[in-house]
Design a binder for these strands. Sequence first.
DNA 1: CTGTTAGCGCTTTCAC
DNA 2: GTGAAAGCGCTAACAG
Lengths: 380, 380
Amino acid sequence: MIRCPHCKQVESINRAGIVRGKQRYFCKACQVHFSFPNEVHTPSLRPHQVTIVDIAEQLGISKSTVSRALRGQSDIHPGTRQAVLDVANQLDYQPNQLAHSLVKSRTNTVGMLVPEFLSSFFPKVIMSAQQVLVEAGYNVVICQSGESYETEVANARTLLANRVDGLMVSHTKETRNFDHLRTFQRKGIPVVFFNRVCEDMTVPNVTVDDYRGAFVAVEHLIQTGRRRIAHLAGPDSLPNSRNRLNGYHDALLHYGLPVDNELIISYDLTLEKVNIYVNHLLNLPHPPDALFAMNDPAAIEALRVCRSRGIRVPAELAIVGFSDDPVSELVEPSLTTVAQPMAEIGRETARLLLNALHGPVSDVPEQVMLPTQLIVRRSS
Amino acid sequence: MIRCPHCKQVESINRAGIVRGKQRYFCKACQVHFSFPNEVHTPSLRPHQVTIVDIAEQLGISKSTVSRALRGQSDIHPGTRQAVLDVANQLDYQPNQLAHSLVKSRTNTVGMLVPEFLSSFFPKVIMSAQQVLVEAGYNVVICQSGESYETEVANARTLLANRVDGLMVSHTKETRNFDHLRTFQRKGIPVVFFNRVCEDMTVPNVTVDDYRGAFVAVEHLIQTGRRRIAHLAGPDSLPNSRNRLNGYHDALLHYGLPVDNELIISYDLTLEKVNIYVNHLLNLPHPPDALFAMNDPAAIEALRVCRSRGIRVPAELAIVGFSDDPVSELVEPSLTTVAQPMAEIGRETARLLLNALHGPVSDVPEQVMLPTQLIVRRSS
DNA sequence: CTGTTAGCGCTTTCAC
DNA sequence: GTGAAAGCGCTAACAG
């Protein structure tokens, strides 16, 4: 009698052919295929985990000696060391990092709090930060909050309970209260911000020059003849958004163009809102001839709105994004955007954290601001 | 005297204006902006971490009582509990998960090994798996290996040393030896494979019906009049690749088309190779009129090659990808592709792991195969 | 209801 | 060189 592993029903099961000698089944209710292997799995209870005491006993020596041998300390008889290593190997000994961390009160692990990792920005930053940190002997554990403040707080608690040695943070768009991060500071655990930084906390941080990036982007639009430039801004809670908005604003002023508040809309970083707002802008009596968006996903969504309305880009509306997501090169027309040095952001964040971790930090916290670069493509 | 935090030089520093009252600097050598905050950071050594003993002493009770109160056990005087909670709060007590895990010999943490997370596939799978697992009270730590076998082995060692309670794995394209994963099995730590599964290990796993997905994709090309269909296959080491290749193969046979080995090229999942191979295919005396690619990034790279060579898609070459990466909808022309239910893969993987974690698993390991869906767009 | 004791697996004095 | 003993912070019997 075959039972669907999902809905536990028996009636809805059909045989679905044989693949590599195995009968496959299909549950009509769940629309799911499944099968069972031939070999039988014998799930013993968790067996005894071998410890240094096991090694010590087998060798008739003390566990201190085993500990020393395993760590390759100097004051140890070469023969003893080899014997320990051999037995450890033979017993398939795996050191217990928990016990080690407990006694050393350091875990060699650092945490990273990010708001999401669906766009390419955070994965790239994570990878380069990780590379630097792993090389320095640290493990990196990544927590993503899905832009939810509550999840971020929960993640921070978990990392704290697990006694990470340090923390890298790019907070959610909802985060206004930073107590969960101040706790780390109070406990003497170094915190480094990147990308989205808290201006009220005195910690090292890594940002890009959002102001300048936005300024140059808008300048480019002006120099290519645009006069009514709209801005899809990010949430006011993010310094990022504010800096880009300021850059936009100052570029208009600098070139003597009026700042029309009707053309500035700040949204919550969800694509549905982009859709609504872009349509709204296009429906204006005097619609904009250009759009500078907070980020690439927004710009690309704007592109789609234009496509669906038959509005030609860039002829009728020029569009510029921010970040240089790999997608921006692939869309049609390809997207002009302000590139951020993602790998460098990661490396710098890792470097600042290592500084804080290693040195008895005698300096004021360092704040790194990386340059951006305008990449002109066909959407402008 | 200002020193560049990167190159440590003094000569290459320029002042770069004042932002929000702070002097900013620019290092010509490193092309980097930086600044220092006003407030001075006093980096004390790591302060004493408060423990249940501290709470016990302050209250003049035993630490067992504190432990019980904190965990909300039943046999405790409500007054005592409240007092403990108050002091814990006042002292900013944070439980030490390491100590807890050590004594319980379980960490409530599960590991996830993925080959990369730059494409959208793994992030999506991770997110949905995480959701299920967090709800069940587990933390998830994610390790990405960048498709490097050595990194995967190192990650596995770390997770083992940190005594994860369970493991979810999608291995690298290089992985042929699975000893690092068998170790978990031997130690009684449940392992679940997903997406890229090891056929030699008797563990639960989650896959999609690659064979059928490929078959349907090629069938679609045939039914829309294509006769010379090329296949850009993945590495032979991945069952994924082999199943998709088989689906391609059988579809041709089923419709009475010849299988031309010249049109089947297997590549190593790097985009540079895609470029070379697609060009090679297009240079053939009898070039293909359609291409079925192992995955969306490859298909999109093929699209770019065509664009740069002025080859019209789909008129001259129809292209079909695999996975339904969000990008595939955005490229021009939009990409026909075989969608994988990423969220469901994650959920199922998490479910299988929870089963193994909770139940004393009395069954044979379950193998789930999820259906795919052909999404026809403009590239075919 | 609460305290005492032992111990999770490891490192670290301090003797010998 | 090596061992004995104490302790990292917490939980879990077992008494009372």
